[in-house]
């Protein structure tokens, strides 16, 4: 197995163009598992850790460019205030050791529907920065993840970063696992309130082939909030509307039975999580006024 270790972005893209079969590696928390389980035997591995553009994040005009190599630990410690939903999701990933190594770019590359970082990116309409020697393109995350473990990357492309607006309202992430730590999501839910654009973003994790935006549920609750003028009044959302929101999210899920849980439980649980996370986020929104 060849180990390729380019020093900068130009070189890394050239290397990827020359070795399209090379498997990119940053933290290795997915790639090394595949190697250890003998699921994959790549001819070459492409180390991205030396490339500053992939390693770092920056902020401009209340938007963030977050390098694909930013770890979960850094998402918690450095981005917790700007992207609270992503930080909450990052806290639920693996163990401290895994969070120190694993990266958000890795979740995008692996494209597992259970990737914890994905629902927060969906809920805030993140864009994925994809680069090759041919240039850079921006793909909305919802289009980037194309199926279970597949994404829109072309063979010569690499995920370099994602672009995401910093939070302007409360965000939540909740995840079901049969134990209280170090667990892969049975299902999860990311939610973000966007008061400036008067929108509610939600995303179901691990209850379908990809993360799923429950558009109907989002539209429904946005309608209720508008109708009652709640963005302005910051009054409570009626309990019946919260219930309905949960039910619509549950309907939007496309879960399966597998070793981690049953389809019916997943559908049930994402509904509960949707209702609860919206309640918590809205409570926070109401408190922020005071």
């Amino acid at each position: 197995m060849e180990f390729l270790q380019p020093a900068d972005l130009r070189e890394v893209l050239e290397t990827k163009a020359a070795h399209p079969e090379a498997v990119p590696i940053f933290g290795g928390t997915d790639v090394m598992v595949d190697l250890n389980f003998d699921r994959e035997r790549p001819g070459a591995v492409l180390d991205l850790t030396r490339v500053p553009e992939i390693r770092e994040w920056s902020r401009k005009d209340r938007r963030l460019r977050v390098g694909a190599g930013v770890t979960y630990t850094r998402a918690i410690t450095e981005l917790g205030g700007l992207l609270p939903g992503l930080a909450m999701a990052s806290r639920t990933v693996g163990s401290p050791q895994i969070r120190n190594r694993g990266t958000i770019g890795g979740n995008l590359g692996s494209a597992s529907p259970a990737g914890d970082a994905l629902p927060p990116l969906y809920a805030s309409d993140a864009g994925i920065e994809v680069a090759s020697v041919r240039g850079v393109r921006m793909v909305p995350v919802e289009e980037f993840i194309t199926g279970p473990r597949t994404n829109a990357l072309r063979p010569d492309e690499l995920i370099t970063a994602f672009m995401i607006p910093e939070a302007r309202g409360p965000q939540q992430y909740a995840k079901i696992g049969p134990r209280n730590a170090m667990v892969i999501a049975v299902c999860s839910l990311g939610l973000a309130l966007h008061p400036e654009s008067r929108a509610v973003g939600a995303c179901i994790g691990s209850a379908g082939p990809t993360p799923i935006r429950p558009h109907e549920a989002e539209g429904f609750i946005e309608g209720v909030i508008e109708e009652h003028g709640l963005w302005e009044s910051r009054s409570e959302i009626p309990a019946s509307a919260l219930e309905r929101f949960g039910a619509l999210v549950a309907e939007a899920a496309k879960p399966i039975d597998d070793v981690r849980g049953t389809a019916s439980y997943r559908r049930h649980a994402v509904g509960v999580l949707a209702r609860r996370t919206l309640t918590w986020a809205w409570d926070e929104y109401r408190r922020d006024a005071g």
Partner: peptide, 15 residues
Amino acid sequence: LRELPGGVSNTTHGE
């Protein structure tokens, strides 16, 4: 959260 079912996975705040 660590004192609730689900822990830091943030599934309940007591509900």
